[in-house]
Structures are given as C-alpha cells and as structure tokens.
C-alpha cells in the first residue's frame, strides 16, 4: 500500500486533534506517514500521539529554519518527500497557514490541490461544501500527488496503535525559501480553552453583547460546557475580543457539534464560517435576525436575561 503523508498540525510539538483526524482518514486509502515539521526538540511531544493514531512512519524534520521563515521551508521539505516517498496523497489541516503550505507544496511538484475538504473516499474522491455549505461537490485531483486540505472536525479520530518507524529528514532550506524572515512571535489572548476550530462546542458573541466586559457571559457559558469562545466581526472590530476568535469568512471556519450564537445577526460572512455546525442555537432579541433561519433552536429574547438563566440551568443539571 502506498504511503499517505499527513502533515502534523501542532503547537510547539503538541499535536492538535485534527492530526488524529487526518491519520484516521489516511488509513482509508493507504499507510499513514506523519510528517513532523518543527523547531529543534519539539518532536518528542508528538511521538506518542502519532503512534497512538496509527502513523506507520514518521518523517521528522526539526530545524530552527522551519519556523524562522514563512511557509516556504515547510513546502520545500514536503516537496522533497514527494520525490523520495512517492506518496498517494498529502493531507494537511485546512488552517490559514495549512492551506498556504499545501498550495506551495502542490505548486512545487506540479500537483493538484483541493481545499477545505470534509470527506475523502477511496479513490481519493473528495467532498467539499462550497458556497457557504449550500452546494456539495465531489471532485478529484488529476495531476501529480493529490494535495488535500481537510477541515478540522471532519472525521472522528480513531486510535490504531502502531510503532512507527522514524526517519530523520535533513532540512536544507534553500536561500529562496528564506525570503520572508520571522523575527518575532507574539502570543495574544491565551485562554486555556479548547482550540476554536477543534472544539466540539463553540459559543460566540456578537455586537449584541454591547461591551467587552459582557463577553464574560459567553465565557462562563462556554466554560461550563467545555467549549471554545468565538466572536463575530462586529465584536472583534470593536476590540471586545481578539481577532483570532473571529468566526466567518475572514475569520475561522468552525464545524462543531454545537454552535451557540449570542447577540449575532447571522450576516452571510458570519454564516460562511459556521453554517456546517451540526446543531445551531441562537439567542437574539430580533425575531427577523437571519441567524434564526439556520438555527435548530432559537430564543427570541434579551441575551442578558436568557444567557444567565441558561448558564444557571446547566449548572443545576451538572
């Protein structure tokens, strides 16, 4: 069986849940080979996780150059592996950076790219939900090694313990790939909550909250359910919540089991980032708000009454 490369999505070595989802998908049509690209000494944190989710092989490329320059070094290492491993496909998490890495790896190798995929069938036919989820498309790559970016939460991760063979990869980044140099990385708004794109529950707040301090209501509710906190663009533009929390066309795309929209009207750009959530719940005082067209359950009411009562009720039920 051919290898299927899975680019490990991680934070300083700590693998993200989507990596397990990609490994699970990869098993459907080949032997999953994880590709770990990170700074020196970061792989140790990923090792056990990759074994647990069935990586048969791990390509380990640790170098300060990986994070020291934007995207190009990662694409270069991946393109090199296309030559040596002749994989059946490359799977990458459909994150803002993931899609750029995937695109450049595809361009370098003359390979086809399909993005924001929600399912991969044998034969490498992929499913995409385009136009805000209104159209379901099936397509396949016709050239080179299919490069596929997969939306987080698209597959349920299954454990399949393995003892992967580790292969160190020499990172010899070309000068051309060192053109965009990272001088500094700043972490903003670390919350201790689950990752927005990976969380199975997301509670988002919008302009209806009226002020930054009222996000406390959203946070309390999210924390009670073990969820992540999102925000509409109106809320991030107002500076009430960091942009990293923005859900929508120009924010993150989320597809959780449960999405709770609090004081969000449901503009089309917002819907583009949450429309495929399994269950959608909305609280809005305007019965005409478009978010109710999407909602499985909606409450027309003042969020300042509804949310505290909801939180209280959930607390009682715990």
């Amino acid at each position: 069986m051919a290898e299927v490369l899975v680019l490990v999505e991680h934070a300083d070595g700590e693998p993200k849940k989507v990596t397990a989802e990609l490994l699970t998908l990869a098993r459907r049509f080949g032997e999953p080979s994880a590709v770990f690209l990170g700074g020196p000494g970061t792989y140790a944190k990923a090792k056990d996780f990759l074994a647990r989710y069935g990586a048969q092989k791990v390509y380990v490329a640790e170098s300060a150059d990986i994070d020291g320059y934007v995207v190009a070094p990662k694409a270069e290492v991946l393109a090199g592996l296309f030559g040596s491993a002749a994989p059946a496909a490359l799977l990458v998490a459909a994150t803002a950076e993931g899609r750029e890495v995937a695109a450049r790896a595809a361009a370098k190798t003359g390979s086809g790219l399909v993005w924001d995929v929600v399912d991969v069938a044998p034969g490498l036919v992929v499913t995409q939900q385009v136009f805000g989820g209104s159209t379901i498309v099936r397509s396949h790559v016709t050239k080179g090694t299919p490069v596929i970016t997969v939306r987080p939460n698209s597959a349920a991760p299954e454990e399949a313990p393995a003892t992967p063979e580790e292969q160190q990869v020499d990172v010899a980044v070309s000068d051309a790939a060192k053109a965009a140099q990272v001088s500094d990385r700043v972490v903003e708004g670390k919350s201790g909550r689950p990752d927005l794109t990976e969380a199975s529950i997301v509670v988002s707040g919008g302009r209806g909250l009226g002020a930054a301090e009222n996000f406390r209501l959203v946070e309390e509710l999210a924390d009670l359910m073990g969820g992540a906190v999102g925000a509409s663009r109106a809320a991030t533009d107002a500076g009430w919540y960091p942009h990293q929390a923005q859900v929508g066309q120009t924010g993150k795309t989320v597809s959780p089991q449960l999405y709770v929209a609090v004081g969000i009207s449901g503009a089309i750009q917002h819907r583009a980032g949450m429309q495929t959530s399994k269950t959608i719940v909305a609280i809005n005082k305007d019965p005409e708000a478009p978010i109710f067209e999407l909602a499985d359950f909606g409450i027309v009411g003042d969020l300042f009454n509804v949310v505290p009562q909801l939180t209280e009720e959930l607390r009682k039920r715990q």
Binding site: G298, I299, G301, P308, Q309, L310
Partner: peptide, 16 residues
C-alpha cells in the same frame, strides 16, 4: 428549527 419567544423561561427551555 424551532424558534420560541422568551417568556421569562427562554434560558430554561434552551437548557432543556
């Protein structure tokens, strides 16, 4: 979906 007006018990209905 179902959309209901809050009659003072919206939060409780949502929890249910």
């Amino acid at each position: 979906g179902q959309v209901v007006k809050d009659e003072g018990d919206g939060g409780a209905k949502l929890a249910a």
